[in-house]
Structures are given as structure tokens and as C-alpha cells.
Write a protein that binds this DNA or RNA. Structure first.
Length: 420
RNA sequence: GUGGGUGUAGCUCAGUUGGUUAGAGUGCCGGGUUGUGGCCCCGGAGGCCGAGGGUUCAAAUCCCUUCACUCACCCCA
């Protein structure tokens, strides 16, 4: 009979990969907590309308990538393609804005987008998502970015590239949009098919095009920063000043635009050369109107999303290997009486929180020793017929290859001390 | 949605003028004298060569179809 396989683009995460994931998550909890964030857990399923209104009807995500279905033929539901809209929904639904002026939240979990899978891109993927809801103080932007880079550094990631830009606000972006449109309109024959389409849907995205002829045109195009209003320019300069205060190196990238409609003012990405085409590990930015557009008060927000699969792929191998820890003790036995004794001891120690392994198959001492070595056990306890008869056991230090005798009545106590 | 690449042992891969029982490394199991790991040596298990069809005396190898995986475009984390 044929086995049933996982759905395309949906991956199992197996050990030892899961060790890496737990390390990433534990580090996130620790770092975010220090910066005053609290964890929020939100549903995987939301009403479709939430994402249409939140992310934007004309975005690729909403237009063609969402897992949307009718629940019992009645209500349109969608597996969340991102976390921000859900967090804002919960924030409003539970009136968190009334409880405090600044709310810092984060969540970790799977997102779903029906794209063609490739390296660093899956249909179910995972994000670590943070949001700060409250006043649009530029120090908040800098603080969030600072926390992000601290987190990435703590995971041992190197050669990261932080790019920032300001997309302006409702007052200044339309002017830029007009400028770029009129610039491109005269050069339509030189643009690629995709860019011609972008001209209609989202002209700013032409900046992202990798086609050479388009890039050439874009290099001469008007740039967003030149169109920022006084308020946006001032805000962006203060963000940069704060980043410099912490000696945080960053690249100003006037051509970085982002694919979600809600971003305003500060946007940023962290990229790396290690990931092939999907080089963005983190993306984020400020959104001035999302809370209001979802029916809430006029509160600004800023957040970022980290791709966990991409992050895990970047963790240096040496760091990942260091996560592999062996048991404290392996118990090797010979004979039924020893096996029974070991079985009792082994599980007793485990219940004290000590990692102990043993073999139940009654194999040769040699193969049990091999197993202990393979597992990277710090110690091996040898318990044979001879030892049982003499009421003792041999405790072998696997690193120094030395062994001592321990009386059976003092065994548990001795091992417990080793664990300290 | 569009294009390229790849499917042979658990894993990484060899294997074309089509020709016996399909190989290596690694991992797994066992052994190298009677109860001691790493190095070394020996042995063993494990594959309808992705699936289906065709050509041929003969197909892992040639042809067609299909499926899966993968990389890239699009877009994004």
C-alpha cells in the first residue's frame, strides 16, 4: 500500500532541526521579554475580510496566494498569510488600547501562502512577529530595530545587511507616486511586461525589478526621499540618529518598497547573501492607518516579521552542533538481574530531571559502549553480573576513559551529584 | 501561473557504443577469543533503479506519458 505524503509546500520539521527551532524560540522569548514585549497567541483562521482590508485588495497575497474557503458554504474564512492583521484585530476586539498607551506584542507561529515552493519559501512557513502599537515616536522605530538586530546577533548570525527607507505618509506619498508615474509613462517601450503591469497596480514596485533595462531606467528615476514632507523627513532623520546612537550600521535604500499596502514612513529589511533568491530574513515597517482602517482609533504601529525557516537556515553549523547535547549517563548492563536494576535506576534518575539512556535489548557490552559513545554520554555505568554479585557498579568517565567503583546503595546519590 | 534541473540503498551519490547475481562512501547490525566506546580491519542486512507504457533477443541506460522533488521568475518572511 502506498504511504500518504505531506501536502506540497508543507514541511515536517524533524530532529535535530527542532533543536535549532527551540533555540531560536527560546532566544526570542528571552530578548523580547527584556524589551517589554508580551506574547499573544492568535488563531490561524480569520474571516477573509480581515486580510482584504488589512493587507490590501490589490496585493499579490490577497489576490492569489491565500488559502480561502467557505465554511459549510456560509462564511468565507482564510488561513492567515501574515500575523499583523490578526494582532490588530485582537488588539481592537479586546480594547487593549484602552488599558495602556503603548502595547508591545509578539507571536510565533505558522503562516500560509499558496505560492510555488522554492528555497526558503514554503506554503506553510513560520514567522516571529512583533508589533508596537501606540504613538509614532521615532525612538520606538529605532528601539524595535535595535532589538531585532540584537536578537539576530544573539543567534550568531553574521554578515547581515540592514536596509531602511521611509515611504512617506498620506500627505507626501501621492506626490511621489505622480512623479514616478509621469517619469515612467514616457518610457513604456523600454519596460518589461511585469513593470508595465506594475505601472497600473503599484508603480512603486518597479523599483524592485531585476530586469537590466528596467533597472537602468529606475536608476535615473525620481527618488522617494526627495519627496518626503517636512514631518516625514524629520521623523526619518530622528530614527537614523537613534540608530547611530547605538552604532547600528544600516544602509539607506531609497529603492526599497514593500509589498504590503499598509506601510507608511519607516520600512526596513534585513537581508543576507546566504539564502539564494529569497534573501530577506526580516521585513517590517510602520503603519499609520492600519488600526484605523480596521475600525479602531487613530493609533500608529510598527512591527516586523522574521522568517523562521530562513533564520534557521542561516545559523552556523558549529552553533547548531553545539546544541546537540548527550545524556549525562548511559547504563550498560549484562544479565537479567542487572537489566532489572538498571531499568529501575534509569527511570528514577529521569524523574529527577537527569537525562539517562540505556539499552533494553540485552546486547553485548561492546555494542552498548558504542551506543554510549555515539550518544555523546558523559558517563557510562557498567552493571554486570559480577558487579551485582559484589554489590557495586563501575562508573566510567567517557572523556577521560577512567572508571571508579560505586556501591549500589550510593548509586543514585552519586549520579545526582554528577548532574550538578 | 511561467521556465530550467533532478528522481538508483535510511542519507550523499557512482553507474552510456543497452549485455550476467546494480555499486561506493556513510549510517545501521554483528564480529576481530572468554565483560569496555572513539581509530583500524572483516562480515551482514537493506534497492520491483519514482510510476506507467513503448522499442529490443536484452532497458537503471533509448522513446513517450505521468507524478514527485528542486532551483529560478513573479511575490515575499
Amino acid at each position: 500500500m502506498e504511504i500518504i505524503t505531506a501536502v506540497k509546500g508543507f514541511k515536517d520539521i524533524l530532529p535535530p532541526e527542532t533543536d535549532k527551532w527551540r533555540h531560536i524560540e527560546a532566544t526570542a522569548h528571552e530578548v523580547f521579554c527584556a524589551f517589554g514585549f508580551r506574547e499573544i497567541r492568535i488563531p490561524l483562521l480569520e474571516k477573509t475580510e480581515l486580510f482584504c482590508r488589512g493587507i490590501g485588495e490589490s496585493t499579490d497575497i490577497v489576490e492569489k496566494e491565500m488559502y480561502t474557503f467557505l465554511d459549510r458554504g456560509e462564511e468565507s474564512l482564510t488561513l492567515r498569510p501574515e500575523a499583523t492583521a490578526s494582532i490588530i484585530r485582537a488588539y481592537l476586539e479586546h480594547t487593549l488600547h484602552a488599558a495602556e498607551t503603548v502595547t508591545k506584542l509578539y507571536t510565533i507561529g505558522p503562516m500560509f501562502r499558496r505560492e510555488r515552493p522554492q528555497k526558503g519559501r514554503y506554503r506553510q512557513f513560520h514567522q516571529i512577529d512583533t508589533e508596537i502599537l501606540g504613538p509614532d515616536d521615532p525612538r520606538t522605530d529605532a528601539e524595535l530595530i535595535l532589538m531585532l538586530l540584537h536578537f539576530l546577533n544573539k543567534l550568531g548570525l553574521r554578515k547581515l545587511n540592514l536596509e531602511i527607507n521611509s515611504l512617506g505618509c498620506a500627505a507626501c506619498r501621492p506626490a511621489f507616486r505622480e512623479a514616478i508615474l509621469s517619469y515612467l509613462r514616457g518610457r513604456e517601450e523600454e519596460l518589461c511586461g511585469d513593470c508595465l503591469r506594475r505601472l497600473e497596480t503599484n508603480p512603486l514596485r518597479v523599483f524592485d525589478c531585476k530586469v537590466e533595462t528596467c533597472a537602468a531606467i529606475i536608476s535615473q528615476a525620481p527618488l522617494l526621499p526627495d519627496f518626503l514632507c517636512a514631518g516625514c523627513r524629520d521623523h526619518f532623520e530622528k530614527v537614523q540618529a537613534s540608530l547611530r546612537l547605538f552604532n547600528l550600521p544600516f544602509h539607506l535604500n531609497a529603492k526599497m518598497v514593500r509589498g504590503l499596502d499598509y506601510y507608511t514612513r519607516t520600512t526596513f529589511e534585513v537581508t543576507t547573501e546566504f539564502l539564494g533568491a529569497q534573501n530577506a530574513v526580516v521585513g517590517g515597517g510602520r503603519y499609520d492607518h492600519l488600526v484605523r482602517d480596521l475600525g479602531g482609533p487613530d493609533i500608529s504601529g510598527i512591527g516586523f516579521a522574521i522568517g523562521v525557516e530562513r533564520l534557521a537556515a542561516m545559523i552556523p553549523k558549529a552553533d547548531a552542533d553545539a546544541l546537540l547535547q548527550g545524556p549525562l549517563l548511559f547504563i550498560a548492563t549484562l544479565g537479567e538481574a542487572a537489566l532489572e536494576k538498571a531499568f529501575f535506576l534509569c527511570n528514577g534518575l529521569r524523574m529527577k530531571g537527569i537525562r539517562v539512556e540505556m539499552d533494553h535489548a540485552g546486547r553485548s557490552l561492546k555494542s552498548q559502549m558504542k551506543r554510549a559513545d555515539k550518544l555523546k554520554s558523559a558517563y557510562t555505568l557498567i552493571l554486570g553480573e559480577r558487579e551485582i554479585a559484589e554489590n557495586k557498579a563501575l562508573l566510567r568517565n567517557m572523556l577521560s576513559s577512567t572508571q571508579t567503583e560505586v556501591g549500589l546503595d550510593r548509586l543514585e546519590e552519586t549520579i545526582t551529584e554528577l548532574a550538578r
